[in-house]
Design a protein around this nucleic acid. Structure first.
Lengths: 165, 165
DNA sequence: TTTTACTTTCAATAATTATTGAAAGTAAAA
DNA sequence: TTTTACTTTCAATAATTATTGAAAGTAAAA
């Protein structure tokens, strides 16, 4: 797939965004590429378009599938694997929220619970316990909100936004 | 400041969390340390506690101040600078949201607007324009939500959560 | 004015993370 | 069974990011 100037810019912008969010650049760029491609792409095609190696392409495209952001597709009479991206931004946002919640929020909550259970309520630990409790409360709230978001549809989100006004 | 086991664990957990969020480990650890410290700390004290170099401490503690997560304090009759953290988790969350919105969301919106203005509506660009429009809409919504959050107080957040049920 | 007690900068280096590409693996076709 | 057309793995290397620590900077005190 040969990209024109604007398409290239989109792919690159998405790469930078991903990078800022701790997602690796190639993974984000592959995602962008698949999102603007009309049809599913083969490894070869992605390699050529983004000028990256076979290994890199393979690893990151499979990471996309694992994140639920892309699908592997088989074409009749073709041995190659093809990949396509989920194009609905709401689906994409929900999948990302899900992954990040699982990987970032849940471990923190678990760690805080553990710290709490191990900490005796001495003078020395007053500040620690205050922080741990506050952060835990907050993290649980965010966690629940994201959980809700994951299960929601677009309308729910719009409704919430309306209520915020 | 000598840390006990649980305090150390808290500092480390916060460091890992920060790392997952693209904030550097030392910055997050310094933040954690200041959050559980009863009083403001000097550079020397932070260096010793976290076993890091002077330069590293100085750079990251100033980054915390820039992010609005810590304050520089002067003590009468002492030439050293002391630092303390904002301890209210709501304030902390709002400051972080503010920084991330400014650094991550706003540039993406700007880039999308730019791409849109440059892209002619040909067949080749159909998918690109669809993606760009969808993502822009979504990003603007999130942007507004965060903006609201930044200006809000704890009660607002609780109210929103209640309405979500 | 000089010294002292600090903070800040920044080039060098260490640590981490991403990428390559060749070799190994797999399964359909010959 | 062997070949062919692919995918996957992984050690080596490149790129990026964080950290050090010495040197330069700063301003209060002597």
């Amino acid at each position: 797939m040969k990209l024109n100037g604007q398409q290239l810019k989109f792919v690159q912008t998405w790469g930078i965004l991903g990078n800022n969010w701790g997602i690796n650049k190639t993974m984000a760029q592959l995602h962008a590429l698949l999102m603007i491609s009309e049809n599913a792409l083969s490894t070869e095609e992605m390699m050529e378009t983004l000028q990256i190696s076979r290994g890199n392409t393979n690893m990151n495209v499979r990471a996309l599938v694992e994140w639920g952001l892309a699908n592997k597709e088989m074409m009749a009479g073709d041995r190659r694997d093809f990949y396509s991206a989920k194009k609905d931004i709401w689906v994409v946002a929900r999948q990302i929220a899900k992954q990040r919640r699982k990987r970032e929020l849940e471990p923190v909550i678990a760690a805080l619970v553990e710290i709490k259970s191990e900490t005796v309520n001495t003078d020395e630990n007053t500040e620690l316990l205050n922080r741990v409790n506050d952060i835990e409360d907050f993290a649980i709230k965010i966690d629940k909100m994201l959980e809700k978001f994951e299960k929601s549809d677009e309308n729910w989100f719009y409704k919430v936004l309306l209520k915020l006004v």
